[in-house]
Amino acid sequence: MDDFLTLLVRAHKLLQAASDEAMSRHGVRIGQNLILEALWETDGLTPGEVASRARLPITTPTIVNTATRMEAAGLLTRRRDPKDGRLVRLYLTDRARAAQQPIRESRRQLAEHATATLTDEERAHLRTALLKIIQQLATDQAGPGER
Rank of each mutant, 00 (worst) to 15 (best):
G48I: 02
A51N: 02
A51Y: 01
R53L: 10
A54Y: 03
A54W: 02
R55Y: 05
L56F: 05
L56R: 13
P57M: 07
T59G: 05
T60M: 04
I63V: 15
I63F: 04
N65A: 11
T66D: 05
A67R: 01
A67P: 00
A67Y: 01
A67W: 01
T68L: 06
R69A: 10
M70P: 03
M70H: 08
M70R: 07
E71R: 14
E71I: 07
E71P: 03
G74R: 10
L75Q: 06
R78T: 03
R78M: 01
R79F: 00
R79H: 07
R80L: 04
D81W: 03
P82I: 13
P82Y: 07
D84N: 15
G85Q: 07
R86C: 00
R86D: 02
R86E: 05
L87I: 01
V88N: 03
R89A: 00
L90C: 03
T93I: 13
T93L: 06
D94F: 09
D94R: 15
R95N: 08
R97S: 10
R97P: 03
R97K: 15
R97T: 13
A98P: 00
A98H: 12
A99G: 08
Q101L: 11
I103H: 05
I103G: 02
R104C: 09
R104M: 13
E105W: 06
L110Y: 05
A111N: 11
A111F: 12
A111Q: 08
E112T: 15
H113A: 10
H113T: 07
H113M: 02
H113R: 09
A114Y: 01
T115D: 02
T115P: 00
T115L: 09
T115Q: 08
E121R: 15
E122D: 14
E122Y: 04
R123H: 06
R123Q: 08
A124I: 08
H125G: 01
L126M: 12
L126Y: 14
R127I: 10
R127Y: 13
T128R: 15
T128V: 13
T128Q: 15
A129M: 12
L130D: 04
L131C: 10
K132E: 13
I133M: 11
I134L: 10
I134V: 15
Q135C: 06
Q135H: 14
Q136S: 13
T139Y: 09
D140R: 14
D140H: 14
Q141S: 09
Q141T: 11
Q141R: 13
Q141Y: 09
A142R: 15
A142M: 06
A142P: 00
